[in-house]
Design a protein around this nucleic acid. Structure first.
Ligand SMILES: [Zn+2]
Ligand SMILES: [Zn+2]
Ligand SMILES: [Zn+2]
Ligand SMILES: [Zn+2]
Lengths: 135, 135
DNA sequence: TGCCAGACGTTATACCGTTACGCAACGAAC
DNA sequence: GTTCGTTGCGTAACGGTATAACGTCTGGCA
């Protein structure tokens, strides 16, 4: 359960178990996979996992990958409050990287506002091949 | 079944039914919702809808919205081959707009390559409020 | 003490998507 | 014309993802 200290508000037992599972996996896991990893710790129902995930996502320690229906522990360099993050998902090794790029964010916001759209949340997920997997 | 003519390769009956449903809805629909709309036309199983959707997505007449697990008929102005599209999803009225912005695409590609990542596919979905729904 | 908010546990259910099988239609190759 | 590969179709069964609706238990606080 190593980790970067987001200003984390005392995790509960289930939240800590779920976070630990994600961190030691180092890759995205589905809620049901997490559940399977934690049956030995007494968890039995999906909802126990989903509730913990909801909280962890809310405080920014875990991200949800929409295109994968899966969750990953935050690896953001510095782990600040990232408003907009772009995820790089390697299809070969499942590793997930995070980009925060202000000019990209600006560009996106501008393009949306040109169309009269007021964005609240941005989902950016790149599928491809990470540095290590390019042969 | 009005529509823009992508260079469409003669849709089959099921494909035309599914596309027609999406176009007349004018908003994203889940595969099961499409199926419910088409029971009267003889469709009975999810697979019939998913197969049609697969094809329609492949030829670019329908887009899949990953963050919604839903599908929408293409409304892209000009409907060309869009490599990278950003979707603007209104959370108030469910309307979906499409942006194609070369400089945004470049910026994203550059940021990824800085990180040693070779992207194959980009998923960009903005959640927010469209022009008509801002009061 | 009484109350409330938040986390918890359990059951059941809804929603999303695929596997596996077999059949029918079409066109190219022989 | 027969063979064969490809593509679409239909059905059944299944597996993966997420939530609803209960009730319980705790800790904080008036
Ligand atoms: Zn992060
Ligand atoms: Zn990789
Ligand atoms: Zn489009
Ligand atoms: Zn709207």
């Amino acid at each position: 359960m190593a980790g970067h200290a987001h200003n984390a508000p005392q995790l509960t037992k289930n939240q800590a178990l779920v976070l630990g599972t994600l961190e030691s996996a180092g890759a995205p896991l589905s809620a049901y996979t997490i559940l399977d990893h934690l049956r030995g710790e007494g968890l039995r129902a999906p909802l126990q996992v989903y509730r913990a995930l909801d909280k962890l996502v809310a405080i920014g320690m875990v991200h949800r990958l929409e295109s994968l229906n899966a969750f990953v522990a935050c690896r953001h360099p510095g782990c600040g409050h990232h408003e907009t993050v772009a995820f790089m998902i390697c299809e070969a090794c499942s590793n997930v990287g995070e980009i925060t790029d202000a000019s990209l964010e600006d560009r996106l916001k501008l393009a949306a506002e040109d169309a009269g759209f007021a964005p609240k949340r941005s989902i950016i997920e790149l599928r491809g091949t990470c540095r290590d997997c390019q042969s």
